[in-house]
Design a protein around this nucleic acid. Sequence first.
DNA 1: ATGAAAGCGCTAACAC
DNA 2: GTGTTAGCGCTTTCAT
Lengths: 326, 326
Amino acid sequence: MSVARPTIVDVAARSGVSIATVSRVLSGNRPASEATRARVLAAAEALDYRPSGVARALKLQSTRTIGLVVTDIENPFFPQLVSAIEAEATARGYGLLLCNTTDDEARELAALRLLVEQRVDGIMLASSRAMRRHAGLLRSLGLPVVLVNSRGVAGLPSVDTASRRGARLATDHLIGLGHRRLAHVTAPRSNVAAGERLSGVRDAVRAADVDLHVVEGDGRVEGGARAVASVPANVTGIVCYNDLTAIGVMRGLRSAGRRVPEDVSIIGFDDIEMAAWTDPPLTTVRQPTDAMGRWAVERLLGGGHDDRLHLEPELVTRGSTARASR
Amino acid sequence: MSVARPTIVDVAARSGVSIATVSRVLSGNRPASEATRARVLAAAEALDYRPSGVARALKLQSTRTIGLVVTDIENPFFPQLVSAIEAEATARGYGLLLCNTTDDEARELAALRLLVEQRVDGIMLASSRAMRRHAGLLRSLGLPVVLVNSRGVAGLPSVDTASRRGARLATDHLIGLGHRRLAHVTAPRSNVAAGERLSGVRDAVRAADVDLHVVEGDGRVEGGARAVASVPANVTGIVCYNDLTAIGVMRGLRSAGRRVPEDVSIIGFDDIEMAAWTDPPLTTVRQPTDAMGRWAVERLLGGGHDDRLHLEPELVTRGSTARASR
DNA sequence: ATGAAAGCGCTAACAC
DNA sequence: GTGTTAGCGCTTTCAT
């Protein structure tokens, strides 16, 4: 059995001062004489004293913890984002309470309840789902909320990548390579970003007067692989909702005996790490996850006014796209 | 500006009872008359009252939160594990405080400090690194610790996959397919599992009297790709430390003009989701991450005695391994 | 069945 | 520069 953890009272007793003095010395908030300072520090050290964040939180009305709700931690894009957020949070001395919802509404609500009861200082929602239905709920939570990787709902700050511009970038890249019959493998419309990316693709297609065929995937590898069957045979370039989809599309295409990029060019979105390692390496549109994470934390701890940040995506050209041959 | 969050006092006032009664009604710990019960519930509802986990934690000396320290959340194996752990934790009403250490010792220590000060009820360490040096520290933390995906340090409970047996399984699979000149791409020895898997490979090789060449990777795709250059040309089967390494090896092989599995068979370890989607799909050894996560949480909340669980790995045969042709 | 009050471990007035 | 004390929001004895 372990001994009870020492409290500020123990430190005070051992150093022969009041608990107030201990508090002051350890926080450095107020000056103390060098002698007492040393004694307090020594006592704390000797007892291996760790101030209770719980007690402090109760007093200061701040847990120095932020809640992070993520749609699907198993989609490699999210760990990248989580990593950026975690880094920024810890750097500021904040803890990160993680909830994974697997895109399940009930779990989403349960997560919010948990976070509110744990009294996190703010909540970050990294959901690709439409949050409009929850907007009211989110605003009534009584604490700062920021939407990450998701377009602003009125009244809530948000950061995301300018998806529409990114998709246009991708499509223009294909068009610039001479492709005239394109396909777009999108994600279910419940996904906000999917709509924006589709719009971006349409922007480009319209401007260049090029053919477009739209097929629905599921945002994962499998959906991409399945979608291939519905892509017309004369298509030479496919813009994918994300990298996972693109990987699936490449697999499907290969199974069907078509070569990438010789027969058809493929472009993804996100630039997950695996994108650099597919065969051929995937051309894609990079989302600046680090900047997203940093801004989100900054914004959340800074107060959370209603403003939105649209980060610029960046085209990353690799081997899965090539000049059209027909 | 949002209004101050209602406290138990507000609920008591509104329902005309004492705070003790409110507490009892809401917790259901003690009976109350139907009439008061209804009034309290109504008041709580009307005020949208959320009990403070902080105050409760201070009183009960339990935050209902567990800390999870992860080596590298960006390695797809970990999100899988985190997902399993998170699911089990939330199911039990516990929150998960996540720390990512990027394998950095300083961040690791900072994470532990943070978790102790936040007074988590227990800590789970999912590190592939050797923790022997920290064993003393971990034991002195004064709270339950369980090691996940890492072999037991004396005095600490742990769950992991029987890596040695898994590697033997993998190697035997190759040997059974007629391969007689094998290579193993391992990970740095700081990684405990790497040593065990190497031993497993050696067990199999010794038993079958087969050639083995060992090359060091880095546990990631890049190291696998680089390692290929050091693999003798006559090797026909490669056992890889993990799936990421295997993906790198496949890439490297293909760049060198060798075909998988026609010229050389490749087998990975972990069975990350992407393994099913490589070209060809990767034969691998599956780690039962769900069971690992569940057991770890159970063990942690159950008290954390010093016992270890070795989960059985499972061979998953896909397209990257084939009968040896020479 | 219900209420009064102590106390969990801190911080910050407010004394001196 | 240091000590005393109230109070953060709960749970739980102990009375009644």
